[in-house]
Design a protein around this nucleic acid. Sequence first.
DNA 1: GTCATCTCCGTACGTCGTACGAAGTAGAAG
DNA 2: CTTCTACTTCGTACGACGTACGGAGATGAC
Lengths: 254, 254
Amino acid sequence: MPADPDPSLRLLWRHVVPSGDAPTTRRGPQQRLSVDEVVDAAIEIADRDGLGALSMRRLAAAVGLGAMTLYTYVPGRNELVVLMVDQALGRTELPALPADDLRGRLELVALTQYADVRAHPWLLDVSGVRPWLGPHMADRYEWQLSALEGVGLDDLEMDQAVSLLVGFASNIARAEHAVRQAQRESGMTDLEWWQANAETLGEVMAHRSYPLAGRVGQAAGEAYQAASDPGRELEFGLARIVDGLLAHLDAKNR
Amino acid sequence: MPADPDPSLRLLWRHVVPSGDAPTTRRGPQQRLSVDEVVDAAIEIADRDGLGALSMRRLAAAVGLGAMTLYTYVPGRNELVVLMVDQALGRTELPALPADDLRGRLELVALTQYADVRAHPWLLDVSGVRPWLGPHMADRYEWQLSALEGVGLDDLEMDQAVSLLVGFASNIARAEHAVRQAQRESGMTDLEWWQANAETLGEVMAHRSYPLAGRVGQAAGEAYQAASDPGRELEFGLARIVDGLLAHLDAKNR
DNA sequence: GTCATCTCCGTACGTCGTACGAAGTAGAAG
DNA sequence: CTTCTACTTCGTACGACGTACGGAGATGAC
């Protein structure tokens, strides 16, 4: 067996490849917990308070261990986060894709991603993960591609279409999360912030002219009762993207 | 003048509203630098090494001050970042929008955002900023809306279309940045990582079946010589989105 | 000349990830 | 049964972080 450049890989696949060449019994005391339990506790903390609030010390306290003991379960914080991603994604059972409804399949790919990122907003803070990596990520990619198999796209376009849908859905969830985050940190809703700063903003912006931004911003503010409405952005954007994809398919299959 | 709930606001607009009610002369020694110089130095650090590497101590050293002296220029790190965003955006002169080429205008809105985020990837890490906020942000929003004025969209749809284009462009830049980041941190390119882990991955994934992911992944890998190709994703996705937007306009104006 | 106010900055506190080494436990080897 | 050795657990410590606090020195207002 060659060296593993990435220490996360074997850990990620620990359930599908039970033990590489490790001895079946280990000396010393049994570990009081399993890696899964540690990762689950970490997911719980990150779900509630964000990835920034997930410290090794806090996680250790949550599972009843000393901080340094965590390092016998997981090589370090980065590797823990990688495990969290795959384990969190594995919690959602991927829904069946409607066989004769391409539009529905495309929307389902996007909406599934949207729901998962909403449930675990810290997924958005994990950037450095190589694709595929874990078993649940691989399952998901396979599922996403199956929504587009046999519709007339070549392999590269299938990959790009999946990226487009998934990236868009993530981006909407990101905007939504940013609003909630700002609200939590400032203690004010968008509307309250706007009202509290209206006078200053008005004074300050009076020195310049923003005819469109003023008109559109006011219309949006009244319609949304906030500065933005991710739900409507999701609906609008997804419709345009799916339209564009279907039109592309039509043009190719003509 | 009422209280300013947001301490960044007056600072952000300091150039368009020179001084609110402050005395024209200040006691004590002159500041050795200007806020602009401090923010420029911060942008330089963040451009080179990311927002995480921008510490108050490092910025202070870069401009030749003690760490705590920065707090006489800027209320805190968060406020500094907000100033950085507006100042970085202000560096790009917004290009003229082609009057009789709607597709070109939409693409230009997206590509301008893409270029700016590529130049300042740390913009992607700034989430909590309320929209509009600064003068350059406001200028930009006005410019983005002007690309869509008079084409048959209502105000809400104009806002949503801008969000769609800008969000998509940012997302592509994010993917590209994530690849570069991973490369920098691991010291390996995507391809090298893949090759180094190929054996482990092959062994581990042999326990499951990934027909589509295997086929598509291999095709993508060969075509891209990497796990992904943000340039092609940009081209493909932008074409689909603009198609979808134009189709929506056609349907509305029919 | 006095004083209020400003800039500048050293120190300190509580946070973080984690390197290191000690203490105790349990299977393996004799 | 004893000894060895690998293992888990964890306390301490280091250098980073943002920034609260207070002191020293400078400058304009009176």
